[in-house]
């Protein structure tokens, strides 16, 4: 089998298995899986910036929240329907990433991390400050009219799962195509050696900004979908915690691998779900996972697997 066939085979198989899961699993897990798929889209976006382009951001919660409020606010204040609201959320994520990128990408490394962290913090505080518009700390429930997409009621199990699945499948295939495209190669080149890439004729600022905007579009789409599928928009989703989560998923699953973000989200979600049955020390699990990963497995599960055995894995 050629590498190309293997690559498509594996990814389509994962999608088929997920599609089948809704008929095989009990409803509790189907809802979980819908949540995981949306969070995985967020993490895929994070992976485009961090895993492939080398941009370690601590501010992705801002893009996720931009998508969520970009969808939720028009539904609340302007009584938009779900489809335009969803698109507004997607674009809001990309636009926010563009604005942040224009400034933050003048820095690199540790400065970039702190600048993105500060912008995200300012965004979170702004949501609190404008509480008459945003609902502040308490957030708001997404109106019923904003949760009916193309005639399907997203508050019910099957349409919700299918909507999450379609978004996830589109995100996954797009990501697969992107990282195997010429531009994907340039993103990796930027991560590996920026100065060399410049002397091959690439503008580092433009490449990184494009990658960050793509990343923001993913985060925006995920944020909008999360608000719409689960019916709630709130400032918690703009806290630093939601910048750390996608980083954790990506580090666990494998930075710079297409399936890594999903695998990381799946494992982390159930790790927390299962441990919370025994103890409520879920923060400890997150913390220990972060420390353990940077110490012992900085390449994550699929990154290690690729290094050891499956060199063709994108």
């Amino acid at each position: 089998m050629t590498d190309r066939a293997k690559v498509w085979g594996v990814h389509l198989l994962v999608l088929a298995a997920l599609f089948a899961a809704q008929f095989l699993l009990p409803s509790y897990h189907v809802t979980n899986l819908a949540r995981i798929m949306v969070l995985a889209v967020f993490a895929m976006g994070y992976n485009i910036a961090f895993g492939y382009t080398g941009l370690l951001s601590l501010g992705h919660a801002l893009f996720f929240a931009a998508g969520m409020y970009g969808m939720g606010l028009p539904v609340w204040h302007l009584e938009w329907l779900s489809l335009p609201a969803l698109i507004a959320g997607l674009l809001a994520g990309g636009a926010m990433a563009g604005v942040v990128g224009l400034l933050a990408l003048r820095t690199a490394g540790v400065s970039f991390m702190i600048v993105t962290l500060m912008f995200a913090q300012a965004g979170y505080l702004t949501l609190l400050y404008l509480n008459s518009w945003t609902g502040g700390d308490e957030g708001f429930v997404v109106a019923r009219s904003g949760r009916v997409l193309l005639g399907f009621d997203l508050a019910t199990d099957t349409p919700r799962f299918m909507a999450a699945f379609v978004l996830f499948a589109a995100g996954l295939l797009l990501c697969l195509w992107l990282v195997r495209s010429p531009f994907g190669r340039v993103m990796v080149a930027m991560r590996e050696n920026e100065e060399r890439s410049r002397m091959l004729g690439y503008d580092p600022f433009r490449v990184k900004l494009t990658a960050l905007i793509l990343s923001g579009l993913y985060a925006g789409a995920a944020g909008a979908a999360y608000g719409m599928l689960f019916g709630y928009v709130g400032a918690t989703f703009a806290t630093i915690q939601y910048s750390i989560l996608p980083m954790l998923y990506v580090l666990l699953g494998g930075a710079g691998t297409v399936l890594g973000p999903f695998l990381g989200a799946l494992l982390m979600f159930y790790l927390i779900d299962i441990t919370s049955g025994y103890t409520d020390a879920y923060l400890f699990v997150v913390g220990a996972a972060l420390v353990g990963l940077v110490l012992f497995a900085p390449k994550g599960i699929l990154g290690t697997l690729r290094e050891r055995a499956l060199r063709w894995l994108p």
């Binding site: 750390i244 400890f284 913390g287 110490l295």
Partner: peptide
């Protein structure tokens, strides 16, 4: 930075 974020949660 990633490790100290982990430390933050653990503490």
């Amino acid at each position: 930075i990633v490790a100290t974020i982990g430390l933050l949660y653990m503490l």
